[in-house]
């Protein structure tokens, strides 16, 4: 068996830091708030372009969210950055203040999923999509790579008034799009490989790159597998999912999140509510399992069955049983 094609890595946080620095120099009402992780999230870059509009709130995520809410009330455009795991410490603040009042706060979480590979399970948030997409008014997005990150965050900051959550990793943005090759649309998704007759992978975040590599492996064996980037988690790209369900007998969701509450559930509910007849399988971090420390990211993906070879193996088996 041929190995999976090498994945070209980029960095979510480097892209984010550069973008925020640029946006802060262009938008006078942009304010970036972080909970003492500015070096890690990239927010520190804003000191270079708008030093008065980047606030280190200290290690206090609940206060971070509440302060951002007040800044939105004052009529400015706050962007909150921080580690996903610890921003969820402010979930109730997000729920009761930001979401309930529909405040214009953008929350950009870095280090989500398995991306803080060395830190281990405490830092590897696997539940944020579930928590955030259950809110009434907050829109939720999960970009595949650095290019998509820039387009997504810039669109939301410039053009969207209201609460939004963007899920980013750390330095694990497997390149999917060329410069200028991604156009963001809320409720959108991107068909990267046309749905196959047997199987289509519906992936989000860094698992889009992994899924492309897995699909290439399977294609080399003669199994045509489609790949769709579901970057808009809420609103979900319903039409794309249903089209994939029309064309493929099996849809496999692939996410660096728990299989419950994340993309797997988004797709399940679309299929069930629309009475679509495709089967669905879920690849992600299974219930009952936490992440782990790992000196490198790819070994951790392998450990949890989320590297291209493991995904391909799983899909091969599922396709054989169709």
């Amino acid at each position: 068996m041929a190995g999976a094609p090498a994945l070209q890595m980029a960095s979510y946080r480097r892209a984010l830091g550069r973008l925020l620095a640029r946006l802060a120099s262009e938008l006078e009402d942009l304010v970036v708030l972080d909970a003492d992780t500015l070096r890690s999230t990239g927010a520190i870059e804003v000191y270079g372009s708008a030093p008065g509009r980047v606030l280190n709130m200290g290690i206090s995520e609940q206060d971070l969210i509440g302060t951002a809410a007040g800044i939105a009330l004052a009529g400015l455009r706050p962007v909150v950055t921080g580690f996903g795991a610890f921003l969820m410490r402010g979930w109730e603040q997000i729920r009761n203040t930001v979401d309930r009042d529909g405040l214009n706060v953008k929350i950009v979480a870095t280090h989500t999923g398995l991306s803080p590979h060395l830190d281990g399970s405490s830092h590897q948030v696997l539940e944020d999509l579930a928590l955030m997409r259950s809110l009434a008014r907050t829109a939720v997005f999960s970009p595949a790579d650095d290019v998509a990150t820039v387009e997504t965050v810039e669109w939301l900051v410039r053009r969207y008034r209201g609460p939004a959550y963007v899920r980013l990793g750390r330095d694990n943005a497997f390149r999917v799009y060329g410069e200028g090759g991604f156009a963001f649309r809320p409720g959108g998704g991107e068909v990267l490989v046309e749905p196959g007759e047997a199987v289509t992978l519906l992936a989000t975040g860094p698992m889009v790159g992994v899924s492309l590599a897995a699909a290439a492996l399977l294609r080399s064996e003669g199994l045509r597998v489609g790949v769709v980037d579901v970057y808009s988690i809420k609103p979900a790209p319903k039409r794309l999912v249903l089209e994939a369900a029309e064309r493929s007998r099996l849809l496999v969701t692939v996410e660096e999140h728990r299989t419950a509450g994340g993309l797997g559930d988004v797709v399940s509910s679309i299929l069930a509510e629309e009475g679509a007849c495709a089967r669905q399988a879920r690849i992600g971090v299974p219930p009952g399992v936490y992440g782990s420390s790992s000196r490198d990211y790819m070994s951790l993906l392998k450990h949890l069955g989320l590297d291209p070879e493991s995904v391909a193996r799983r899909v091969r088996r599922l396709a054989a049983a169709l």
Binding site: G66, T67, A69, A72, A74, P78
Partner: peptide, 12 residues
């Protein structure tokens, strides 16, 4: 929650 919001309103 409201003391944080008050701070934010003043900062903004």
């Amino acid at each position: 929650q409201a003391l944080s919001v008050s701070n934010g309103l003043v900062i903004g």
